[in-house]
Design a protein around this nucleic acid. Structure first.
Lengths: 151, 151
DNA sequence: GTGGAAAACGAATATTATTCGGGAGGGAAA
DNA sequence: TTTCCCTCCCGAATAATATTCGTTTTCCAC
């Protein structure tokens, strides 16, 4: 179970990840070793999935962010797993969700150019897709990975 | 400009962020100081937006991930900025995009319960929204922050 | 209150990042 | 080709930081 200090640590980790263990310990009013042990415990118990560097999409030439809604004609579990596996392996697919609503899946995909997007959509179509609806992101208003722990 | 080694570093940082600088330097066949200098340069020049800890939504009680499509009746720039600012400030809104298609915005939102989702939608409705369409994520097939640098 | 487990502390150590002086490589000009 | 200069690298030294360890404190259950 998590106490108040654990939540405080998690919240600091997801917003100010670069804090040293010493600074972190000062923020939560604990000694450095005690703080360190807690962080390790939180990692161990699966409260922290991963640490990651968020790269700048624009600077790296990825200017085309899309949402793709798709449905499939597949209904057998085995084949569905296969489909999902293939989707997961595609590097352009950043997120893939199974959804309520009129489509089976929603994808968030990223591309360098219209040409690459077109190639990607063609690739998708060869996967047993019955319907596809692609929209393009005009502007990113907010893109965060932070959970509202402190709300 | 980026050379091959820079791209290699960025790719390692976004997939194996916890690597020590020493390990990182060995992976890219450079000395530790040279690698360190490159990382600092990449941060400086804005190729790395941020470092973050990705928390486990389920373990922390956030079991309700949604996509919300919304349109607005607002057309004046000033008021639109205001609206976007309000959306950005809402902690449940993890992502917000201005889109092509039949809705103006798409949001990715996260909640602890149906009750909180309902309160959130009510809050949205008081912001000058003309249309709302909310879908619920049944299952996360893939959720990544990794750009396909090596594709 | 008392015993026992869990968790904290400070000091010591190990690991890692960071700085620094010097040198190799490569292009431009003579 | 030689020289100069700039850029980038390296290894060694230092500084900062994480991590371990033995001891003490805290906090329940009885």
């Amino acid at each position: 179970m998590l106490d108040e200090v654990d939540v405080h640590i998690l919240d600091l980790l997801q917003t100010e990840t670069r804090l040293s263990n010493l600074e972190l310990s000062q923020r939560v009013n604990l000694s450095a070793p005690a703080t360190h042990a807690r962080v390790k415990r939180l990692e161990q118990e699966g409260y922290i999935d991963s640490y990651t560097a968020i790269l700048n999409q624009e600077k790296l030439g990825y200017d085309l962010l899309c949402t793709v809604f798709m449905s499939t004609s597949i209904h057998q579990t085995q084949e569905l797993n296969e489909l999902e596996h293939r989707l997961s392996e595609m590097p352009e697919v950043m997120e893939c969700y199974c959804m309520t609503g009129s489509f089976d899946y929603m994808l968030k995909t990223i591309h360098r150019s219209r040409k690459e997007l077109e190639a990607f959509i063609r690739e998708l179509n060869q996967l047993g897709v019955s319907q596809l609806q692609t929209s393009i992101v005009l502007r990113e208003v907010k893109a965060s990975t932070v959970l509202p722990l402190r709300k």
